[in-house]
Write a protein that binds this DNA or RNA. Structure first.
Lengths: 209, 209
DNA sequence: GATTGGCGTAGTATTACTACTACACCTGCC
DNA sequence: GGCAGGTGTAGTAGTAATACTACGCCAATC
């Protein structure tokens, strides 16, 4: 009989997860908690076969809870659920010791598949996450992403993040706009970001602007 | 016997909603749809006692669906569910004709209470929403800059701030790119901002993204 | 009823930007 | 010394976006 712990601040989601899991594991004993504190407490005090935890919860995050769980119950498999796309959090979560990262809009069958896989001692890795893991080795440098930029690239990052247009930056640096556009492309590639909005958000979060 | 229509792109959420509702209304007949198109089709073709719809769904939004529902079935009560806090959408949604706005982290008992209230012909208004309605007239000139935007403008703001390109937004909203570009210009003018980076920063600071 | 303003929508001409490609120079490594 | 990779720079062809302009519809106001 499996003991399954579900952590999510949304009662609706907990209920949906519970029902989906009970269909696949009718004899499972399912417990629900609504925040990371309760999640950690339950893991410390009792033995579980698997934890399914939301990534974003009020107070301490699911990622923090994951780190604590790995301290107290290193062998306990943890599946992290999130509304965020994989490219934002999957690697970070897997590095922290999760057995899998699931997006909340996934089909119930896939969720059940993931639980089966993890309960059998394996990790649940989607092909797109596998690809990111393969490329992440090269990005596995210490320090913030912007530390990987050349001086010129860093200069251009800050101007782009502040909202300067390519042509404005080209004028002020006495370059052609295609040069600045190339810098932008290199910056995005090195920092594994996609859009100017990503650059702005990153720069705000890292106090670059 | 109540016929209840649930619209949410997340199967987990639909399942949770279904179970919670079936506990309070054991004889209810519940139908699930995963997007706004199906929601509108179902409302046009069949008779329902109440609709519970997620605000954010792929393709057309729940707000758009609400507007269509009000055209085809003006008397049909619609409860809108969202992860977004009230201050972003509640007034907008209620003005569009919803019978209530519920945050997804609400307790199941409150959800059931809201359904009871709405099925009896009333609106479900939380005290904090009532306060916002009472002050909304005066807040037309005060309030956050984004409150000055129309529904469509607000929708485009969030997409731009998140880094979507004009052409991506145009595709997903089935508009021409010049239309979206015009919205962007109007948004910037109404909010007295100049660049997309300004939109991103504003949206981060105001928890819009 | 007439007028005004807001909103949703979009075309034209023009400009900005990008993917792709490339070159020269410098540094570090073998 | 030769090679590889990083950096600074930028052109071409094509696409994306914008300033300017405009229209229809609706609601509010006089």
């Amino acid at each position: 009989m499996r003991r399954i712990l579900i952590a999510d601040d949304h009662a609706i989601v907990r209920r949906g997860l519970k029902e989906i899991i009970l269909e696949a594991f009718p004899s499972a004993e399912i417990t629900e908690v609504a925040d990371a504190e309760d999640l950690i407490n339950k893991v410390v005090k009792e033995v579980w076969d698997i934890v399914l935890s939301d990534l974003s919860m009020p107070g301490r995050s699911g990622l923090e809870a994951l780190q604590q769980i790995k301290i107290h119950a290193p062998k306990l498999p943890v599946l992290i659920l999130s509304v965020y796309p994989e490219d934002q959090y999957a690697i970070r979560v897997l590095k922290a010791g999760a057995s899998g990262y699931l997006n909340k809009d996934m089909a119930p069958e896939e969720l059940v598949n993931a639980i089966h896989k993890v309960l059998s001692g394996r990790k649940y890795i989607t092909p797109s996450i596998a690809e990111k893991l393969a490329t992440n080795i090269d990005l596995n440098t210490q320090g913030p992403a912007h530390a990987r930029l050349s001086d010129r690239e860093f200069e251009v990052l800050k101007l782009l993040a502040a909202g300067k247009s390519i042509s404005d930056i080209a004028s002020s640096l006495f370059l052609s706009s295609t040069t600045v556009s190339t810098y932008r492309a290199r910056i995005l590639a090195k920092m594994n970001l996609k859009t100017n909005a990503d650059l702005t958000q990153y720069s705000l979060e890292n106090n670059l602007i």
